[in-house]
Nucleic acid binder design. Structure first.
Length: 394
DNA sequence: CCTCCACCGGAAAGCCGGGTCA
DNA sequence: TGACCCGGCTTTCCGGTGGAGG
């Protein structure tokens, strides 16, 4: 008779998987002292009943923006004692003024959980609430995802003008430097009262961070110091992204575990890197709506079945013509018994796919009649087709 | 030099599914 | 139940754009 102990036995590698997850917030955040202090000084006025300045935080992915802000807001909550509230909002989910305000209202006022109220009603209720002298800090993570951000920021400034006491302030977080360009000048100046930058981590810093997590997350003796340093070096070379570094580490650990080894080394880390690259592509594709996937598949098919290619001046070649991809897309749709979307929609899909780095587009230049886009795949076509087709079969 | 090509992408309006309130 | 509200996704409309062709 087998014993359950066999299956619930402790992992030889993992001690605490949560520590390796990107959502984990360590007690001490290395190399962010300066930013954390600055942020705290920025928010401190709210604890004395005054309105803090709006703050904009910029930094690439995996530079500890969200982590630092969350840590600071924890500390803030401990001190606030009902005088002030801090609300964290992920704008990927709450990406419209209405949704943001609704989320704020729900977080701040007990019993406010009905949808279906109009924005003006929510606004009035929030004004009444804050008007009793309370400070509301709204953290907008991935603020560039908010549509009509101008409207939202304007609403907040207007609220502050109407209030005798209390107020609203915004802490915006983004990894896009260019996004402020298409902001209304008035919103720009209000959002950028204070600006903070989170630089990418260097190899040394990443290595120290990874060591810290490894001590907490892995069993003692289950990893070599060299493996950790290698993971840090790879990630630093790519982008200085701590999240990416952690992914490599987790993957390497999983590989060792599956191979029933007691520890992981440089070899596992090197192999894990490849897997993580594919993981990232797969995650991006999984979240894609159906039509985007079909377009991606069309591009992959054409880049295999050597149709017409364009060559650029700098010698870069293998670009496909937008018009031909659209034809391929429509015929694929017919095979799948789905009505194809218009060319205008197709153009938006292309742009979305480019944003995600799944393909590259360039404007056509000399040698090509008319004016069009030339498109190339960002990843090996066979891998992409495998991933997409799995999804398209329902 | 003018016109045509083969597209581009913004704005606005329409449709749909999911929700609330009285 | 009907009148609203919201967000997401489309389609329609339409004014560009830069090189090729004549």
């Amino acid at each position: 008779m087998p014993s359950f102990d066999e299956f619930i036995s402790e992992s030889r590698i993992f001690k605490d998987r949560d520590v390796l997850s990107p959502h984990y917030i360590p007690d001490t955040l290395h190399f962010r002292d300066h930013q954390i202090r600055e942020l705290m000084s920025s928010l401190a006025p709210a604890l004395m009943g005054k309105k803090p300045r709006n703050t904009f935080i910029y930094g690439k992915t995996g530079t500890g923006k969200t982590c630092s802000v969350k840590q600071v807001s924890r500390k803030f909550d401990e001190k606030a004692e009902g005088k002030a509230r801090i609300v964290y909002i992920n704008c990927r989910i709450h990406n419209k003024p209405y949704r943001v305000m609704l989320k704020v209202a729900k977080a701040v006022m007990e019993g406010f959980d009905k949808q279906g109220y109009g924005l003006p009603h929510i606004y009035e209720r929030l004004l009444e609430w804050a008007g009793t002298g309370k400070q509301v800090l709204i953290i907008l993570d991935e603020i560039d995802m908010v549509k009509n951000l101008d409207e939202l920021l304007y609403m907040i400034t207007r609220a502050n003008d109407e209030l005798e006491a209390g107020g609203f302030s915004v802490i915006g977080i983004s990894n896009k430097l260019l996004f402020k360009e298409d902001l209304d000048p008035r919103s720009k100046s209000s959002l950028y009262e204070r600006e903070m930058v989170f630089p990418p981590y260097t190899a040394n810093q990443l290595q120290k961070i990874l060591h810290q997590r490894a001590e907490l997350g892995f069993q003692p003796g289950s990893f070599t110091s060299g493996a950790i340093n290698l993971a840090g070096a790879i990630a630093a070379q790519e982008s200085g992204d701590a999240r990416y570094a952690l992914k490599i580490l987790s993957r390497a650990a999983e590989m060792a575990e599956e191979a029933d080894k007691g520890k992981f080394t440089d070899a596992e880390v090197k192999a894990a890197r490849e897997l993580v690259e594919l993981d990232i592509v797969r995650e991006a594709i999984d979240k894609l709506p159906e039509n985007h996937q079909v377009v991606l598949y069309a591009v992959a098919r054409l880049s295999l079945s050597g149709s017409r290619y364009a060559r650029l001046d700098d010698g870069d070649d293998g670009y496909l013509f937008s018009g031909e991809i659209y034809e391929e897309y429509t015929s694929l749709c017919k095979k799948l018994r789905k009505p194809p979307k218009t060319a205008r929609s197709y153009r938006s899909y292309l742009n979305d796919l480019e944003m995600l780095g799944l393909l590259t587009c360039v404007e056509s230049g000399k040698g090509i009649r008319g004016h069009t886009k030339l498109i190339k795949l960002g990843h090996p076509p066979r891998e992409l087709m495998k991933i997409v087709s799995k999804h398209l079969e329902e």
